[in-house]
Design a protein around this nucleic acid. Structure first.
Length: 781
DNA sequence: TAAAAAATCGTTTTT
DNA sequence: CGATTTTTTA
């Protein structure tokens, strides 16, 4: 019986395979130009099996630097080579950048026309794309808005104001956090309400309920909804589920250790029918627990898929032996983990250098000076990364890099798209697309002032609630709203018809022709120009920059709609938009650094309380996550690793004292060397054994043999620093430059630094303008 | 209603 | 300290 069934199965399998082959030959033969041997060539045996076992569930435990990306891309290429239709492949990554890179690399292995058909992106962007198509099936319109964290917080804040909730204990941002973490764990407001034990929780439950209602009413989804609504779409009917199961016959998930419950369920539903699921991850690199990631997902994979195969990638191709040994020593202090040990054939490498500093300014100065010396000895600035635990730490580092004229880019911090004026303009555009989006409407209704202050808005909001009309409808019929001053009513009506006019235009004309005129007509640019302060002119030029950006977008993608543009920028992470290959040092948080690698890495701020970051009620789980984060940081480094701490650090204006991080103690002594003299106040017992300091002051580093001479050529004096050549990419007053839309111009002033560096330029065509160099893409002439 | 003055708060980490 | 939010005043 069993044998017979098995024979049948094999027979069916053969038929399907044969069918797929002929389908493949018919469709793709003509454009397939790849070379099969190239795909598995040069892979080690484990990598090879991770690429070649294409059917059935497979867990790839990929240690840091073990060639994970290569396995993922080659696996997809291999699937395509084996007659799998690219449009049946779903690859979910952590950032859009990772997805795009993957696609590019696949395009080099198989024909680009095949590569572009795979479904690759973040969970959020792929699901959003599908939800646009299927919106009507779950009670949404396809033009739904996507709310980011700020938008969500603002919704919560308004709801709390309406309900008169709120106290020191109950703040909008916290409530939003509670709601989001419930949604991450797939807990509905009803469940939350049922489990509420005190009045605070009952209040949150009420806000939660209203929050969900508001978003549906606004035809809007937050980030969590993109996952949850996708799941509910799949749950709608057997047919829909089957459709997507058959669509995504081959599923790959990167960074599986950082998936949350909703992502886990979504994958499980999709993979259930065909079971061709390959997840790649490393439990030691799970760093998003605070965002709902469940490390258990990767630990339980074998339970969830009993017939799964496991491949361990334990050979590290990235780092030196010293770095790997340090990483291993650190992570060994964690309790629960899948046992594995990374090894490498790479050389031993330099010792890890620990920089003891008396305060954060000294720390920043040392880091900058070391980089400058290494740069002058011939290294490339793009080969340096400075990592920190919190974004706030970038400030002193920036100052010292600027002082030495070293160009840098910052990933994260206040992103361009999070600036008030940019969010305002985007809200103006969103309301054209989705008139139900009350959040966007309220944001811009009195920006610039239109005589519609808080009182008028409250009346309008009340009316919309009482008569169950959308805010936009009420604006349109403002003369019917009682208590509303006639003047305000006229103003509201005028605003509604203004929006309607451009909304109509957008349906008839290409977006690029409408948007610029529309934003000009809103008066927001004129407002900032009139205020005429440094700050307001900044905002003015930021908006112009955005408009230029939009223009570029549609020049490059003439077939796309304004909806596509908004969706695209709603889901971009900072890391996605940054070009990290320029001649600049990269500054970012340890979280942003995940998945990246650099020859030279600095991890700064290794102080107790800062890294590991701790609060009064830090749990053991949180502590271990900090340690994993440190592990991630260490393993970013290919050759040289610098760890620094400061005994005093400026915080909120005043200065706080600190003690070196306990993490430093976890690295064996023989792997490190200390730099600089022991600073007064540096008294922790465990460090005193290590006090073999090379020089009395901030001494020269022990250079790598190859670059020894160049080190010695540059004496360690203040004077020499000022003689160093200005950095390339840097502009000077008087330079003649070319701008894509404004043409030729001359720089008359420069201000700011880093990505905020701005130039005032007099253009022949349009006169004087302020531009952010980072965005302006100027050419020097 | 809008501008000016005063007060408040914060720093994790991000799709 | 500095940006944002709330309160006061015209």
């Amino acid at each position: 019986m069993t044998i017979k069934r098995q024979k049948n199965r094999i027979f069916v399998f053969l038929i399907i395979t044969f069918y797929k082959m002929s389908e493949y030959l018919n469709n793709f033969e003509s454009i397939s130009n790849s070379n099969k041997s190239a795909i598995t060539e040069g892979l080690n045996p484990e990598q090879k099996s991770a690429v070649e076992i294409i059917n059935g569930p497979i867990l790839v435990l990929a240690g840091a630097g073990s060639g994970k990306t290569r396995v993922l891309t080659n696996r997809i290429a291999y699937l395509i080579e084996n007659n799998i239709n690219p449009s049946n492949i779903l690859a979910l990554t952590f950032t859009n950048k990772a997805a795009n890179e993957m696609k590019e690399r696949i395009a080099r292995l198989v024909h680009y026309k095949l590569a572009r058909n795979i479904w690759a992106g973040t969970f959020h962007s792929v699901f959003a794309r599908i939800l646009r198509l299927e919106a009507s099936k779950i009670g949404y319109e396809s033009n739904f808005s996507i709310y980011d964290q700020d938008d969500s917080t603002s919704v919560v804040k308004n709801l709390m104001k309406d309900a008169n909730y709120g106290s020191a204990k109950l703040q909008p941002a916290n409530v939003r956090g509670v709601i989001s973490s419930c949604k991450n764990k797939m807990i509905s407001w009803q469940e939350f309400e049922r489990s509420a034990t005190n009045s605070i929780e009952r209040q949150i439950a009420e806000i939660f309920r209203e929050y969900e209602n508001t978003l549906v009413r606004n035809n809007a989804m937050d980030f969590d909804d993109l996952l949850l609504n996708f799941i509910s779409l799949l749950g709608k009917s057997k047919d829909i589920l089957k459709e997507y199961q058959d669509k995504f016959k081959y599923i790959l998930v990167d960074e599986y250790q950082d998936t949350n419950k909703a992502q886990y369920i979504a994958i499980q539903m999709l993979a259930k029918a065909h079971q061709n699921i390959c997840v790649v991850g490393d439990d030691a690199q799970s760093i998003y627990r605070w965002r709902g990631a469940e490390i258990q997902n990767i630990l339980d994979f074998q339970k969830d898929y009993p017939y799964s195969k496991i491949v361990r990638l334990e050979q590290n191709y990235r780092s030196t032996k010293v770095i790997l040994a340090a990483a291993h020593a650190v992570i060994s202090n964690n309790s629960r983990q899948i046992p594995k040990k990374l090894w490498t054939d790479n050389p031993k490498g330099d010792l890890i250098e620990v920089l003891a500093c008396s305060d954060d300014r000294e720390e920043a100065r040392k880091v900058a000076e070391i980089i400058q010396r290494m740069y002058n000895s011939g290294l490339n600035l793009k080969d340096f990364a400075i990592l920190y635990r919190t974004n706030a730490q970038s400030l002193s580092l920036e100052t010292s890099l600027r002082a030495l004229n070293l160009p840098y880019i910052i990933v994260g911090g206040v992103s361009f798209y999070k600036r008030k004026e940019i969010k305002d303009v985007l809200a103006y555009i969103r309301i054209l697309i989705n008139p139900k989006d009350a959040e966007s409407l309220l944001r811009i209704v009195n920006e610039p002032p239109r005589g519609l202050g808080q009182t008028s808005i409250n009346h309008i909001k009340e009316f919309s609630k009482d008569y169950n009309k959308t805010l936009f409808d009420v604006f349109d019929n403002a003369d019917k709203v009682v208590h509303l001053q006639n003047r305000s009513a006229q103003s509201a009506k005028a605003f509604a018809s203004f929006i309607r006019k451009y909304s109509q235009m957008l349906k008839e004309m290409p977006p690029v022709d409408v948007i610029s005129e529309y934003i000009n007509a809103t008066g927001i640019l004129e407002m900032y120009r009139q205020i005429n302060t440094e700050d307001s002119l900044d905002r003015w030029s930021n908006i112009n920059q955005l408009l230029f950006d939009i223009k570029q977008y549609f020049t490059n993608n003439p077939d796309l709609s304004i909806e596509d543009y908004i969706q695209q920028i709603s889901l971009v992470a900072d890391i996605d938009e940054k070009d990290l290959n320029g001649n600049a040092i990269t500054l970012m948080t340890l979280h942003s650094a995940k998945g990246l690698e650099y020859p030279n890495v600095f991890i700064t701020g290794l102080e107790k309380g800062l890294f590991p970051l701790s609060r009064i009620d830090t749990t053991k789980e949180e502590e271990e996550e900090e340690r994993r984060l440190f592990y991630v940081g260490i393993t970013r480094s290919k050759e040289r690793l610098f760890l620094s701490y400061a005994l005093r650090r400026a915080k909120f204006g005043d200065v706080q004292t600190a003690v070196p991080s306990p993490f430093l103690r976890e690295i064996p002594d023989e792997l490190t060397k200390y730099w600089g003299k022991p600073t007064s106040g540096f008294i922790e017992n465990s460090y005193q054994q290590k006090t073999t300091y090379p020089q009395k002051t901030f001494a020269k580093p022990q250079p790598k043999p190859a670059i020894k001479e160049s080190y010695n050529q540059i004496p360690d004096t203040e004077q020499n620093y000022s003689q160093i050549q200005p950095v390339v990419n840097e502009y000077a007053v008087g330079d003649v430059v070319y701008h894509n839309s404004f043409g030729k111009g001359r720089i008359v002033a420069l201000s700011g630094s880093g990505q905020a560096r701005k130039a005032t330029i007099t253009f022949n065509s349009v006169g004087q303008k302020q531009l952010i160099l980072h965005f302006a893409k100027l050419k020097k002439m």
